[in-house]
Write a protein that binds this DNA or RNA. Structure first.
Lengths: 176, 176
DNA sequence: TTTACCATGTAAGACGTTACATGATTAT
DNA sequence: ATAATCATGTAACGTCTTACATGGTAAA
């Protein structure tokens, strides 16, 4: 599938950046639907260079610190757009360790279950709060021509997903 | 994390079964929150035997076909219950290739986007239908003492998750 | 001066998928 | 007969995480 490849191509297409920048994008902007560690990103960047999908030029920060600023090539742009336009089958599973535990819930006692459900609720509520904070910085929906449109809709999707998870947790609590 | 280990322990704890049965459980019962291929399950079963968490006895189907029926040991039960009672931090990401594509949506045109969103909607609607069909076979919420309680709540969670995803897709369509 | 951040890489191992490989049993 | 299902394994490859490894820059 090589989704990381396309995630990187998409980020570099938005604007040229370093491996370090890409790592930050994953940890800050894309964290709610994709992520990767720098140990995965640097080798992938090398691979994309040998495949001719990106190029880089070395810049100097301060006196000696070298950084590689990557740009997408025409070939890279073409492959990225082909990927973007491809209609995928929905993924079969979204693994969720907590749901797995709940499947086995009758093997334990109500007190334990309440403790786990309350903890999950707290954590998801915190996550929802920080998502809402970011989401509320938007004043209305950006137009499709606005480059922030994508960020807006996935952020709204993340908020909705958290709200829904909390609803489910509450339902489980009500059943006990 | 070794979640597969605990998923297998939990299944075998419910009732002794073969590697083939476990594979089917993953593909049929647990598919909406966990899965694994037989090529991953058989080696894990061997590992669990050497760790003393499960044992097996060989049975014969028909004339010659051997099958290994696995049971959980006391040690296995203990480790499983410890895992089940452990309060986890929520997972940082649920990777979603389609959300990633939507993040980059402004790089393509509205027609393409509508095509992708409509396709996702169709597929998620089908998935939701089959989930509802299974869910509706329950007449009311099983009691916590009922072994089907876990299945019921995760099934309801899966239905809610699909409904929520469809709501988000509809919102995206409305924005275009 | 020291802390936070910038910047890039490799190694080892865990986890997961696809393909290879084989053969028996049951239902139509 | 023959197709679907039962039943168990290994090999190769791809993906992902944790740890190892190094050093520069900027702000307090």
């Amino acid at each position: 599938m090589r989704t990381l490849k396309y995630a990187i191509l998409g980020l570099i297409k938005q604007s040229p950046m370093t491996g370090y920048d890409i790592t930050n994008e994953f940890n800050k902007e894309l964290i709610h639907f994709w992520n990767a560690k720098h140990s995965q990103i640097y080798p992938e960047l090398k691979k994309l260079v040998t495949e001719g999908l990106i190029t880089y030029k070395t810049e100097i920060s301060g006196e000696v610190l070298e950084k590689k600023v990557y740009s997408i090539t025409e070939k890279g742009t073409k492959e990225f757009q082909e990927w973007l336009m491809t209609d995928d089958k929905i993924e079969p599973t979204a693994k969720d360790r907590f749901r797995l535990k709940m499947y086995f819930s009758t093997i334990t006692d109500k007190e334990t279950l309440l403790r786990l459900l309350n903890s999950q609720t707290r954590q998801h509520f915190e996550k929802l709060s920080s998502l809402r904070e970011r989401f509320n910085q938007y004043e209305g929906v950006p137009d499709f021509s606005d480059s922030r449109f994508g960020d807006y809709i996935v952020l709204e999707g993340a908020v909705m997903r958290e709200e829904n998870y909390l609803e489910w947790l509450q339902k489980c609590l009500d059943y006990l």
